[in-house]
Design a protein around this nucleic acid. Sequence first.
DNA 1: GGTACACATTGACGTTCGTCGATGTTCTGT
DNA 2: ACAGAACATCGACGAACGTCAATGTGTACC
Lengths: 115, 115
Amino acid sequence: MATPLIALAETAEPCCALGEGPLGPEDAERLAGQLAALADPMRLRVLSHIAAQGCEAVRACELEELLGLSQPTVSHHLKKLVEAGLLSRSRAGRSVHYGVVPGAFAEIRRVLDLG
Amino acid sequence: MATPLIALAETAEPCCALGEGPLGPEDAERLAGQLAALADPMRLRVLSHIAAQGCEAVRACELEELLGLSQPTVSHHLKKLVEAGLLSRSRAGRSVHYGVVPGAFAEIRRVLDLG
DNA sequence: GGTACACATTGACGTTCGTCGATGTTCTGT
DNA sequence: ACAGAACATCGACGAACGTCAATGTGTACC
């Protein structure tokens, strides 16, 4: 991937809404990066599962059986979601907990405000 | 593409929001299809350009010079956006006009309501 | 009818993505 | 220290994607 999506979570600078102005190439690239992280069935199911349980404290192993995917593949998807700034990662003993970053989706919804 | 996205525009049946329930595989697939249509810099710029001009009556040729892409590539992106139910297509003499489908983005924003 | 314009489709190419098995890393308990 | 558990990384493979040149399909005007 050319532009690391981690930079998004750092700067936290919101992309301009689609309706306001023509949306330059660099903003379009960044927004597309966020949406690409969402544009996968398995990752959407991961987010939905975590959100349905209170947006916190989900271990990777339970996602493995939920999705029917191998452990490396689940780890791969989780990494993408963290890089996009949608999930947060925290160790808890041997396991790792993943939670939804508060406000991350509100950001995206705001950009899509042109209906 | 396995599942045609056109079916979305026909049924108009909204996916359940991410927070409500675990989000089954088929709903996840459909939502991912919509988001995949958005997850491209050029297509975002197309939508932004159309929205900035009043969501109606944009000819493909002016998008060609805006994006700096070849004519077949622009046509390809427009087709994807129409299939995803985000753009509407209508002939006007020799040229073709593309407009933003009203309510299409509100639909997606509603699904992402868990921030 | 014939020519020119605006757009769509086809076929091909390089790149990226999702997935897996194998292996590495980090922590716990004995 | 050792064995095992939980997760991350690596390398490889097939599929899908974005892009283009070449060609096809309508539509308008003379």
